[in-house]
Design a protein around this nucleic acid. Structure first.
Length: 433
RNA sequence: GUGGGAUUAGCGUAGUCGGUUAACGCGCCAGUUUGUGGCACUGGAGACCACCGGUUCGAAUCCGGUAUCCCACCCCA
């Protein structure tokens, strides 16, 4: 094949043999979000660059080196969204959604773009499902959000996922902590790895989870955020834990959890799996009480999370969780002869109108080959139409799994009735392509 | 951005001290006599051996570069 070009680096095609798996998890996203009172919001793939510079934070890696930014013919600086929160928050403000009864709960299901070096669980175009809740400071809201994420994992039967939570405080107490942290590490400056020397300037909390062994040891003696939380933040964090306990959601407190985006305050959390390699954070989120104000709105507390759909699917794969694959046809109509071909066409059309997935040969195969085809694509039932059937006005409906055949009137209504009752049968639903 | 590994038909692979029409399995198509699938058998289509360049009488096999994928760092979902 002399294909003129391949797909761009770090992107993926979603082909039919994969797309049903996405549809499966997407359905769960929609249903779980609805159960928690969330409504879908869709925003543009691209935004004015300034939105991310302000919303995500100018000093973050995401903004500094990973954005797809370009200047339009009109001279505007535009950026492909690297995450979902900024756009969702912008839309909330732009449409005055904060005037709706609080809390406002929105969710999104979108593609995101980051100019990164691809590896397992990390793509340049990837997809996130996120839930965003605005207008409440109540720690019960934090716990509710985390519980919602947990509910999704539970429905997918994902195991061995650990939930780690932390509080990184409000700007006031965090500033003090940063100071203490910087002072602590500055004493070891010469011993730190190059990355950490840089982190010391840009984001001291990142020093805490350095993987270089020597640095790791130094970090063990570092002051903990939790010791620096102000009364309000401490009380809030205690509340979150209490509500999580009440909800029966297991977690561990990990004071080394940091979020990479500037907007986070107080609660931060991650759902992590060890089964998909180094990029094991399947879901990350927390509270960002300062974001709305940062974007030019009146101050309003907010919180949310984002789930990486590719990573979620990777986890499902790794844990060998089977997503049922829908079969292509409920009924395949085999036919021979011109009369029967016409009849097959008409019958299929009538069944489809009634919601039955029906098909018949349209490539000119012989009967034997038609049956082979029906078998290969996993048709649940088949029926054969020929001169005899048309003359007698009846045919044999064959269950492709068991091979048993039952007589049925050659009449669209009779077929529709048969398939309406068959649909209630679980065994039928399990048929896969 | 920094390291390491890989790249042969749709998929999974074999083939390298360079030598005639690149092999196998799965999948795909057709057929195995006249109206029926899952097994088996027969036949067939499908690869400029990632790309570009070099060495050579001759390269999938050697050398260089590029691209993409994978793994890790970094970062994050």
């Amino acid at each position: 094949m002399a294909l003129i070009t391949k797909k761009p680096k770090g992107t993926e095609d979603l082909i039919p043999s994969e797309s049903y798996r996405w549809q499966f998890v997407e359905k769960i996203f929609h249903e779980e979000a609805a159960a928690y009172g969330y409504s879908e919001i869709r925003t543009p793939v691209f935004e004015h660059t300034v939105l991310f510079e302000r919303g995500v934070g100018n000093t973050t890696d995401v903004v500094q080196k990973e954005m797809y930014t370009f200047v339009t013919k009109g001279g505007d600086s535009i950026t492909l969204r690297p995450e979902g929160t900024a756009g969702a928050a912008r839309a909330l403000l732009e449409h005055g959604l904060f005037n709706n009864p609080l809390p406002v709960k929105n969710y999104y299901l979108t593609s995101c773009y980051r100019y990164e070096k691809p590896q397992a669980g990390r793509l340049r175009e990837f997809h996130q499902f996120g839930m965003e809740c605005y207008g409440t400071k109540d720690p019960a809201a934090d716990a509710e959000l985390i519980t919602a994420a947990k509910a999704i994992f539970d429905r997918l039967q994902i195991r061995d996922l650990r939930l780690e939570i932390n509080s990184i405080g409000c700007p006031e107490c965090r500033a003090e902590y940063h100071k203490a942290l910087t002072e602590y590490f500055a004493a070891y400056r010469d011993e730190l790895c190059d990355d950490c020397k840089d982190r010391l300037e840009r984001n001291p909390m990142r020093l805490l989870d350095c993987k270089v062994e020597h640095d790791h040891k130094i970090a063990e003696g570092a002051p903990t955020v939790l010791d620096y939380l102000c009364d309000e933040c401490r009380e809030h964090f205690e509340g979150v834990k209490a509500y999580l306990d009440a909800n029966g959601v297991a977690y561990t407190v990990n004071p080394k959890i940091v979020r990479g985006l500037d907007y986070y305050t107080k609660t931060v959390f991650e759902f992590i799996t060890d089964s998909i390699g180094a990029q094991g954070t399947v879901c990350g989120g927390g509270r960002y009480d300062g974001l709305i104000e940062e974007l030019g709105g009146n101050p309003m507390p907010a919180l949310g999370f984002a789930m990486g759909i590719e990573r979620l699917l990777l986890t499902i794969d790794a844990q060998k969780i089977v997503i049922p694959r829908p079969h292509r046809f409920d009924l395949y109509i085999g036919h021979m002869g011109d009369q029967a071909h016409l009849k097959a066409s008409a019958l299929a059309a009538a069944l489809r109108t009634a919601g039955v997935k029906a098909g018949f040969d349209i490539v000119g195969r012989g009967l034997r080959a038609q049956m082979k085809f029906a078998d290969k694509i996993g048709a649940a039932y088949s029926v054969i139409l020929g001169d005899n059937e048309i003359a007698e006005g009846k045919a044999m409906l064959k269950n492709m799994k068991t091979g048993e055949q039952t007589e049925i009137a050659l009449d669209a209504d009779a077929f529709i009735e048969a398939f309406t009752s068959i649909k209630l049968n679980d065994d039928f639903k399990e048929t896969v392509e």
